[in-house]
Design a protein around this nucleic acid. Structure first.
Lengths: 223, 223
DNA sequence: AGGAAACCTTAATATAAACTTACAGCTTGA
DNA sequence: TCAAGCTGTAAGTTTATATTAAGGTTTCCT
């Protein structure tokens, strides 16, 4: 996700930019405030962080200019603190308003919420677990390895999920069975073995034959 | 626009409700806090205002419950004031956070911004959903594929809409039934199967026989 | 090394989830 | 008021997946 930062205070600009990059965002920082529109058009960012107090024209002005051509999500920053400033920001076409000084955690959280709302399709691609090249998609019950994929059944999926949640520690068979079937008394010991085997076979087809290790007498583990 | 208000403080509830109505919103106020889900399902509001401190379960809990079946815009209210509360609210699936006491102007402005962002399709007149060549018209319940079309019944339409809204993720049968019939206890399990079959038949006639995939034991999915 | 417990493999069988088809009660509108 | 279409129910069938069973390995301990 590409974020455009429009902020004239160098300290804040750098701090915000750095933190966002640490979080995996791509950033575009404005340094020449008369070229905001060019930069916006060239980079086509997914979200804009806009300070209100700027040299020459203010943030509202630029928001207006941008809104003429785009519905990009926009969060205003400002040290002003009257309700009128918030109301203004929203009415000018902004999506949120954060008062300075602010916590970066809050900015990130608000950005994520807004991005989720705007680009909701991205949400579905984010609920996954990963380990050593194997990606387990929690939404559609698929495992991926590189460009290969395989469908898991309900039980296989649960087993893999439990093992990945506990990666690095041994999960013993009894515990596993209790999670899978609640009353372990009524299902055969061997049922788990067979399910593990099926899961291993599918992982093997993805080239990860030894993803799950047996610890004899103790249980299974993903290392 | 219909707004659901979940707030146990009677003074605030009435004040908010009155003001919203003065602004032309339709309001639904929760009075029995164990019936939030029923009310939500029955009214299907466009936005939810959610207090965090509630009797028995808190606002985060109900947010989670609602998020299992809906992406409705949600604004949290709370008198707590640490940055962590804001971050929590966003991470739980909220869109915004307003600290009490607040100005009604601010609430209204934030609501409007969020509604504008969420329902922007209303402005652009593109009341359709599209995926993989299938276009669902939200106005008249028609599906299009290329130059072919087919009329859907109410139930078929809802099923397809729910699946398309959640494309890429498995929607389990129970959740589906809860959305379709509110009180799942009174309709047969098989009714859903039959409706899915009828919908599939129509999609099949448009040449999209395998648009909806069954994940046995898990639910249905559009990939 | 030898034996036993723990685990694996394969294939047959059972089971419950989902599908199909047919039908009857309702609505709706001509 | 009667036909047409929507909707849910029922009964019987299919099918994906879980389970059982039987015989084969591996591992580890004495």
């Amino acid at each position: 996700m590409k974020i455009m930062i429009v902020e004239d205070d160098l300290t804040i600009r750098d701090m915000v930019g750095e933190t966002l990059e640490k979080w995996g965002f791509e950033t575009v920082k404005i340094e020449e405030f008369d070229q905001i529109m060019q930069v916006f058009l060239n980079h086509d960012p997914h979200l804009v962080i806009m300070d209100i107090n700027l040299p020459s024209f203010d943030g509202f002005y630029w928001c207006n200019k941008i809104r003429e051509i785009s519905k990009v999500p926009m969060i205003f920053l400002s040290s002003r603190d009257t309700p009128m400033d918030i109301v203004m920001s929203m009415n000018m076409g902004g999506d949120d308003y954060i008062q300075k000084p602010f916590y970066m955690d809050v900015l990130i959280a608000k950005m994520n919420a807004l991005l989720r709302r705007t680009y909701s399709y991205l949400e579905t691609h984010s609920k996954t677990m990963e380990h050593d090249g194997i990606v387990l998609n929690l939404d559609d019950g698929e495992v991926l390895h590189g460009d290969q994929k395989s469908d898991l059944t309900k039980t296989e999926f649960l087993i893999l999920k439990i093992l990945m949640q506990n990666k690095g520690t041994i999960v013993n068979r009894r515990k596993m069975m209790r999670s899978l079937w609640k009353d372990e008394n009524f299902v055969d010991e061997n049922t788990l073995t067979v399910n593990i085997a099926r899961l291993r076979k599918k992982l093997g087809e993805l080239g990860k034959e030894y993803f799950i290790t047996t610890k004899k007498g103790q249980g299974y583990i993903i290392q």
